[in-house]
Design a binder for these strands. Structure first.
Lengths: 117, 117
DNA sequence: CCGTATCCCCGGGGATACTG
DNA sequence: CAGTATCCCCGGGGATACGG
């Protein structure tokens, strides 16, 4: 196989992989929600509602379901009175930690770049 | 300052930073577009249109503008006939490379996790 | 080739109220 | 507290055609 064609195939796979990631992490809220759970290890519904600026309970509920379906988070019901619900990252969800940390660091640098300059 | 409060402040800053990042990288297309340019170093309008599955020219045009405003990419017009336009990452845009690579790798692993399991 | 302009539709998602 | 249910609006974004 010629080299140019090989490279092109390779880049197509990479593009697909990136878009696969973005399909799972789609929308405005997924990353911030995961970040909230990630930073605190365990987090409750109402806590996340406060952490993620601007999200509504309806959206949060929907997004949490999707994240659970994709095996990124786990929902844990504690039988207190009234009921308490904890969310935490699965092992697979924890593989996003690097990305979260990079995005955190990048957000800080970006603010400096745009505002500071 | 007590420790719990300090930690809380710290996490709030982290949450803000993540959301700052997501504001810049918002929507379905920004990351794939940047990825396309990143993988190929330089890339033309119509090439990106092909790389990013499902995007319309209208959207691509809009997104490229926003990325340029945020100093992530640079638009270079070559006076060929007809006109050719190259897009490339700025120095600041290149600081996203780590994140792109992580997302690529993660996309591959995630597919294995969901499909393979 | 690289976009802009227009038209037009539908569903994402906010506000609010309610349940277990 | 942790969601669900309903209503309702508006703007994101596709399709298409056109301009430099």
């Amino acid at each position: 196989m010629e080299c140019a064609k090989f490279e092109s195939q390779e880049h197509k796979k990479e593009m697909m992989a990136v878009q696969d990631s973005m399909d799972v992490l789609n929308g405005k809220w997924k990353i911030p929600i995961i970040s909230s759970i990630c930073f605190y290890s365990k987090r409750r519904f109402s806590d996340i509602l406060n952490d993620v600026a601007g999200i509504s309970n309806k959206m949060l509920s929907k997004e949490l379901k999707e994240l659970e379906i994709n095996k990124l988070i786990r929902r844990i019901v504690l039988d207190t009175q009234p009921v308490t619900v904890q969310y935490e990252l699965t092992e697979h969800g924890k593989t996003l930690q690097t990305i979260i940390n990079n995005l955190t660091e990048w957000g800080i640098q970006h603010r400096k770049e745009i505002v500071g300059k």
